[in-house]
Write a protein that binds this DNA or RNA. Structure first.
Length: 798
RNA sequence: GGGCAAGUGGUGGAAUGGCAUACACGACAGACUUAAAAUCUGUUGGCCGCAAGGUCGUAAGGGUUCGACUCCCUUCUUGCCCACCA
């Protein structure tokens, strides 16, 4: 009654595996297509998000295969990370044992979906054969000054004795034990991604086939901001405080300046002043707050007076210097000029502390008065109280004041960036060991290339009582200095896992290559990735880091392109009852159980049909049943094949081939499937022959590969359907001799007309005007205008 | 606060200036059946009408156009990203 999906799917999965059906080999004579989906973290089970991501990729991959491309479609595992350590502690096992077990399980589940991966290229980032090259890349960066070490504030849980990522700080406490998180200075390794900021920003313009949204997010993240650094002289001292502003037009309204609590000058300024005690107490308090707390939501802006004064360089006014928590050391110069009338934060702060205000930009056509302001005016207007610049629009003034100040040496036109260097140190075990050694005599010494990989010890203790397990393995930590052979200490920090995924797409080109991170020749053939598919959650970090690494390899002359991913698709999330599927919500639908019930093909079909790839997808069991029903409906066609199909059905077939080909190219799988369903309905009306049926199956094959292979074989074909080719269509057959036109009166459809395709315009007009159905609408009046859109409609305007 | 995306039947969605609601889900009806399931065939936006047909209708309001779900302006709502960024 139903087709036996279980038997069929197992059969073809075995055949594909035994024949290495999707093995890819570089072949300069053929057009290549590199299709990549973001590789998963091996949790052991696939979820609907994976199913969606990888199904979209698989359809595209098989479609390209049928079109004759040399397709590379690899898969691997992003296998380092904290869950393995947690599991090791919880289950008294080892991270590697746990991870490899999960990888095995996950492979099985992926294979059960029938994905067309070249499993010969499989990589796991936790293999030393992979992370060896992480270390190699790190050393190359170290040589070029792109990797460096410096002290920086981190979130520190004093109870767990570990650093926490920002996401691990919940309401100011540790996510695990709720202890109050502190700021602590630790020596950390950084990558100097900021050296690449201009290229990373500029090259976004080359990514024509990336979603606007992702480009906007990256642009935002890099955060280039143009303005002026203004130099404020300190009253009675030699130092000058530079502040950054994007609103130099408001400089005449700057009535005080504010330093960040961490600003190096603060402690000097308050020394010996009556305000010293209170100021120190304030700085102390702020320094203890974690970043997350300090930058959270609508906290009240707090601050204290330093007792010092600065001089506003444009009018020589003495203005007070304050310290406040709303100024951040990490951005700009760590100091701001405050213009309460034209900046809302400054406005609130000035009201609170009764600081002076002066209006310098007046909105056009209305006199604004400082005493009456209830909020800052941040809009455009005309300069007032601005000496020789009065009367200019603020936009004109912005440029003129900047130039004027630069000439006088009181300011400098300046650009600031939001992008920070990338902190890669993690005080964790399950990651790539950073390949350096600390020698009391020689300092930081890189591990020599020939000693790579620095492997993770097999028997580190996982006790769960904090601190890095690596630090507890004596044989790992105690080493001889490679330079002086004296006693030295090995780095125990490991790399952030984003490092691993920043170049894996290059490793896939030559996964077993032993001389370097990747084979330059192979990469030259396969790269760039023609189509990359993954979740929007990686829109910023992963994609930015991958772009950064690619540019680094370009500088090493290992690649000759500057962007790794030609085309990007970010697939939407899978929801249930309007909410993201998650363990905590308890609304997870397990793909494996759906495969058991309806088969992988039905699941693939449903997930592609239910929504366009980029939008959210609402899980619908009834919809899955519907997909399964459709497959059975197609299955039954083979029982009633005719000798020769009707001409009209053949025409429908050609139309369908055109539509489906176009939709597949544009990743519009939902409408492609709709067309295939319409085509199937038409077959039920008039009956298919072998040729029509074969074409239907071929068009379905990227979506439901096992199902298609089986029917293809039943039709007597000896080779796999994926060795055949995508059907073409005859444009001649798409042309209809007689077409139906819409006749409108004043833009409303009032009648329809069947006419020959090539009817002359004049004749058509006449015919339309004579249409008796239009009588009541025309009311005997003569038309004012008649619009004819060839082969579409006639609109009569009265 | 800034940026981006979206808002269409009972539901998922289709149509990107030219017949709004393709395709599917659900619902209802008919055929087959002792019966059910499965299958096949229909109907299915609201209102008025026995009907033919009319009329309203794509978040709300306005505009451009012979013609607007589609383009422009204003407002509202939802989602995502960034955010004391100076």
């Amino acid at each position: 009654m139903f087709y036996d999906f279980k038997k069929i799917e197992e059969k073809w999965q075995k055949i594909w595996q035994d024949t290495c059906a999707f093995r890819a080999q570089a072949d300069p004579g053929r057009r290549k297509y590199y299709l990549l989906e973001m590789f998963p973290y091996p949790s052991g089970k696939i979820h609907m998000g994976h199913v969606r991501n990888y199904t979209i990729g698989d359809v595209a991959s098989r479609f390209k295969l049928l079109q004759g491309y040399n397709v590379m479609h690899p898969m691997g595992f992003d296998a380092f990370g904290q869950p393995a350590e947690n599991a090791a502690i919880k289950n008294k096992t080892k991270p590697d044992v746990w991870t490899y077990k999960c990888i095995k399980e996950m492979e099985t589940e992926l294979k059960r979906m029938g994905f067309s991966y070249d499993w010969d290229r499989e990589i796991s980032t936790c293999d030393s054969s992979y992370y060896k090259w992480n270390q190699w890349i790190f050393l190359k960066m170290l040589e070029r000054g792109l990797a460096y070490k410096r002290a920086s504030g981190v979130n520190w849980c004093p109870s767990c004795q570990t650093t926490l990522a920002n996401e691990e700080v919940v309401d100011g406490g540790c996510w695990r034990c709720h202890t109050k998180v502190e700021q602590k200075d630790l020596e950390q390794w950084y990558l100097k991604i900021t050296d690449y900021k201009e290229r990373l920003l500029e090259d976004l313009g080359k990514l024509k086939q990336w979603p606007e949204r992702v480009l906007a997010m990256q642009n935002n993240w890099i955060g280039k901001s143009a303005g002026v650094d203004i130099y404020f002289r300190l009253k009675g001292r030699d130092e000058v405080v530079p502040v950054f502003t994007t609103r130099v037009d408001t400089i005449f309204g700057a009535t005080y300046i504010v330093l960040a609590p961490e600003h190096p000058l603060v402690k000097e300024l308050i020394k010996g002043k009556p305000e010293e005690k209170e100021a120190l107490r304030f700085i102390e308090k702020v320094s203890k707050e974690s970043k997350v707390v300090r930058t959270a939501g609508d906290v009240k802006k707090e601050g204290v007076f330093t007792g010092a004064f600065a001089v506003n360089p444009v009018n020589n006014e003495d203005i007070p210097v304050w310290v406040a928590d709303y100024v951040l050391m990490e951005y700009g110069t760590g100091a701001i000029m405050a213009v309460p009338t034209h900046d809302q934060r400054d406005f609130l702060f000035a009201k609170e502390h009764k600081l002076p205000m002066r209006l310098v930009i007046s909105p056009k056509g209305c006199g604004m008065r400082v005493e009456e302001m209830s909020e800052a005016y941040e809009g455009e207007g005309v300069q007032v109280n601005s000496a020789e610049f009065n009367g200019l629009t603020n936009l004109e003034a912005k440029e003129k004041i900047a130039v004027w100040m630069e000439k006088k040496g009181t300011g400098k036109i300046q650009t600031h960036w939001r992008l920070r260097d990338w902190l890669i140190s993690r005080q964790r075990f399950w990651g790539t060991p950073i390949p350096v050694i600390y020698c009391p005599k020689c300092g930081i010494v890189p591990v020599p290339y020939e000693e790579l990989p620095v492997e993770l010890p097999k028997d580190a203790p996982f006790t769960g009582d904090g601190g890095s397990p690596l630090g507890k393995v004596k044989e790992f930590v105690q080493v001889k200095c490679p330079r002086c052979s004296g006693e030295a200490r090995r780095e125990t920090d490991t790399m952030a896992t984003f490092f691993d995924s920043s170049w894996y797409f290059l490793r896939f080109c030559s996964p077993a290559y032993g001389d370097s991170a990747f084979d330059v020749q192979e990469a030259k053939y396969w790269m760039r990735v023609d189509q990359y598919i993954g979740g929007i959650e990686h829109a910023i970090l992963h994609l930015l880091y991958s772009r950064f690494f690619t540019k680094f390899f370009q500088d090493l002359k290992m690649v000759d392109f500057d962007e790794p991913f030609e085309k990007l698709l970010t697939q939407g999330m899978v929801l249930k009852d309007g909410e993201v599927m998650s363990k905590s919500r308890g609304n997870i639908v397990d793909p494996d159980s759906m495969i058991k019930e309806y088969g992988a093909d039905a699941l693939r079909l449903f997930i592609l049909f239910a929504a366009p790839p980029e939008t959210e997808l609402e899980w619908d069991r009834k919809g899955l049943e519907g997909a399964f029903r459709f497959l059975n409906r197609v299955w039954r066609i083979q029982e009633n094949l005719k000798e020769k199909a009707d001409r009209s059905l053949v025409k429908t077939m050609h139309k369908t081939v055109k539509k489906v080909s176009e939709d597949f190219n544009d990743f519009k799988f939902n409408t492609a499937i709709a067309s295939l369903m319409e085509f199937t309905n038409a077959i039920y009306q008039s009956g298919a022959d072998r040729d029509v049926f074969s074409k239907l199956i071929t068009m379905l094959s990227p979506i439901v590969p096992h199902f298609a292979e089986e029917l293809w074989q039943t039709l007597g074909n000896k080779e796999s359907i994926f060795k055949s080719s995508w059907p073409g269509y005859d444009p001649e057959l798409l042309i209809e001799e007689n077409i139906e036109l819409v006749i409108q009166v004043n833009g409303k459809v009032r009648s329809k007309l069947k006419v020959s395709r090539n009817i002359p315009e004049a004749e058509l007009k006449e015919l339309a005007l004579k249409d008796e159905k239009l009588g009541p609408w025309l009311g005997g009046k003569s038309p004012r205008k008649v619009i004819v859109v060839p082969q579409k409609l006639v609109n009569i305007v009265v």
